[in-house]
Computed example of a mutant assay.
Amino acid sequence: MNPIQEYFYRLNEPARSTLLFLRKKILESDAENITETFSFRLPFFKYKKKMLCYFNFSKKHKCYYISFYHGDRLDHPQLLQEGRKKFKILLIDLDEDLPLDVILNLIDEVKKFY
C-alpha cells in the first residue's frame, strides 16, 4: 500500500468515505493538471506541480478540513485563517452534506493565481 492509500485506510468512517469522495472529485476536476502527493504525512494536491490544497485534522475544531494555498487571497465567509500566512481552511462537517460546489469553486480560484 502506498502512503496515500495508507493515510485513507487508517481513517474511521465516515471520514474515510467522505475524504475519499472529495479526493476523487478534486482529481477529476482537472485530471490533466492536478496531481496528488504525500508530504508531511498528509495528502497534498498540486496544480501543475505547485501547491493547491491538502486535507488535515483540526484538533481545535475536532474535525477534518481542506486547506487552500493562497487562501490569504480568497474571500469566502466559510474560510478560516486563524493566524496562517498563506493558507485558509474550510472545515468539513461529516454530519452535513459536503459543500462540493464551494470546494471546487475555491480550487478554481486558487488555480487562477498560477
Rank of each mutant, 00 (worst) to 15 (best):
C53F: 03
K49T: 13
K60L: 12
S17Y: 01
R41M: 08
N2T: 12
R23I: 07
L27G: 06
M51I: 09
D30A: 04
D101H: 11
C63I: 02
E109K: 15
H76T: 02
E32D: 11
K25L: 13
R23P: 11
N2S: 09
L27K: 04
I66M: 14
D93H: 13
K88Y: 03
I107H: 08
S29D: 13
I103M: 12
L74Q: 05
S58W: 03
P43E: 10
R10I: 02
P14R: 07
L27A: 08
Y65C: 05
K46H: 13
F38A: 06
R41W: 06
V102H: 03
Y65R: 12
V110N: 05
S29I: 01
S58R: 09
I66A: 05
F68R: 09
N2F: 00
K49N: 15
F40A: 14
I92Y: 01
A31R: 12
F68W: 01
Y54W: 06
D93K: 07
D97P: 09
D108F: 03
I34V: 05
F55N: 03
F57H: 13
H61C: 03
P14D: 04
E32M: 10
L11V: 01
N33G: 04
K46P: 01
Y69A: 07
K50R: 11
T18S: 11
S29C: 07
N105R: 15
L90E: 07
H76N: 06
Q78C: 11
K59P: 02
I66R: 12
L98M: 07
Y47Q: 02
P99T: 04
L100E: 15
Y47M: 00
L74F: 03
K112Q: 10
K88P: 06
P3Q: 10
K112Y: 05
S58P: 04
E96H: 15
L19N: 08
T37A: 14
F21A: 13
D75V: 14
K62W: 10
N12D: 15
Y9N: 15
L106R: 10
F8E: 02
N105Q: 13
L79C: 05
F55I: 06
P77K: 13
I4L: 07
C63V: 02
K49L: 10
N105K: 15
L80H: 09
V102T: 14
F87W: 04
G83F: 00
R10W: 04
H70P: 00
F38E: 09
E109V: 03
T18N: 05
V110T: 11
Q81G: 05
L79I: 01
P77G: 04
L52K: 01
N33T: 08
D95H: 14
D93W: 13
E28Y: 01
I89K: 15
I26E: 08
I34G: 00
F40M: 11
K111E: 02
T18M: 11
F87V: 12
I89L: 12
Y114F: 14
D108L: 09
K50T: 12
F8Y: 11
S17W: 02
D75E: 13
F113Q: 11
A31M: 13
D108M: 10
